[in-house]
Amino acid sequence: MTNENETTATTETATATAPLVEIAPNSALLIIDVQQGFDDADFWGPRNNPAAEANIAALMDAWQETGRPLVLVQHASRTPGSVLAPDRPGYALKEFVAERAGRAALHVTKSVNSSFYGTPDLADWLTAQGVGQLVVAGIQTNMCVETTARMAGNLGYEVLVPLDATHTFDLAAEAGPDAPRLTADQLATATAVNLQGGGFARIVTTESLVTAARA
């Protein structure tokens, strides 16, 4: 069973001794794959962090209120039977994101994990806008969020990841009762360590970002 407190504790531990967050005037908020298909528990299995959606909405509102750019990323799966295929209802953005979609400066469609391999080209747009700082949130923590953050770090962007504005699902290495398996919270912890420990991104909280953006 997943535990929201574990995800919160992971984020707080990673940021407890960190300096205050500074948000650039043109910091871009990337909201990745917050789509209705991820609500299908039968397809994905147990998830973590039920507060993710509320935190994502708070970030979107803060960015809109302060005039910073919002980028929406949507996954168009090519995998047969995927609930995220463009012809399936699950491809649609979750309602709270769709309600805010009109505020987006860019809408990227992708079919792989990295948001930098999509259409329109994200890196070209960021360069044209002079953006050097990215805030990366959405679904799934250890898949498209982590991959996008890693690549952004490699490309030289300053990357902030509010772990509490992401969620993921339990995952096994392969089918079968004896297959290695990690819970969603364990995967989220691994992502935090990979990104911050590996120098790709800094793990922060939604609250710290919203406070800094509105300061």
Rank of each mutant, 00 (worst) to 15 (best):
M1K: 13
T8K: 04
T8E: 05
T8R: 11
T10Q: 01
T11H: 10
T11F: 09
T13N: 09
T15W: 13
P19L: 00
V21Q: 02
A24C: 03
S27M: 12
L29G: 08
L29M: 08
L29N: 07
L30R: 06
I31N: 01
I31K: 03
I31W: 04
I31R: 00
I31Y: 01
D33N: 10
V34D: 04
Q35P: 15
Q35M: 14
Q35I: 14
F38W: 15
D40A: 12
G45I: 03
G45Q: 02
P46H: 08
R47K: 12
R47F: 15
N49G: 03
P50D: 00
A51Q: 06
A51P: 06
A52I: 06
A54L: 05
N55S: 02
N55K: 05
N55H: 13
A58G: 03
L59N: 05
M60T: 09
L70T: 13
L72Y: 05
S82Y: 04
V83Q: 04
A85V: 04
A85S: 06
P86Y: 07
P86H: 04
P86A: 02
D87M: 08
R88Q: 13
P89S: 07
G90C: 11
G90R: 10
Y91I: 09
L93W: 14
K94Q: 14
E95T: 15
F96W: 10
V97Q: 01
V97S: 00
A98W: 11
A98E: 11
G102P: 14
R103I: 06
A104E: 01
A105H: 10
A105W: 09
H107N: 00
K110C: 01
N113S: 10
S114G: 01
F116V: 02
D121F: 11
D121N: 15
D121Y: 05
D124I: 08
W125A: 14
L126E: 01
L126S: 05
G130H: 12
V131N: 04
G132M: 09
L134E: 02
V135D: 02
I139C: 13
T141G: 02
M143K: 04
M143Q: 07
M143F: 15
M143L: 15
C144E: 04
T147D: 09
A149H: 01
M151S: 00
A152R: 06
N154V: 11
L155A: 05
G156L: 09
Y157R: 09
Y157K: 12
E158D: 12
E158A: 09
V159G: 01
V159R: 07
L160C: 09
T166A: 02
T166C: 15
H167Y: 15
D170T: 13
L171I: 11
A173R: 15
A173Q: 14
A173I: 15
E174V: 07
P177C: 00
P177L: 02
P177N: 00
L182F: 15
T183S: 15
D185K: 09
L187S: 00
L187Q: 05
L187T: 04
A190F: 12
V193N: 09
V193S: 07
N194H: 07
L195T: 03
G198A: 04
G199K: 05
G199H: 03
A201F: 11
R202Y: 10
T205R: 10
T206W: 11
S208W: 14
L209P: 14
L209N: 12
L209W: 13
R214D: 02
A215V: 14
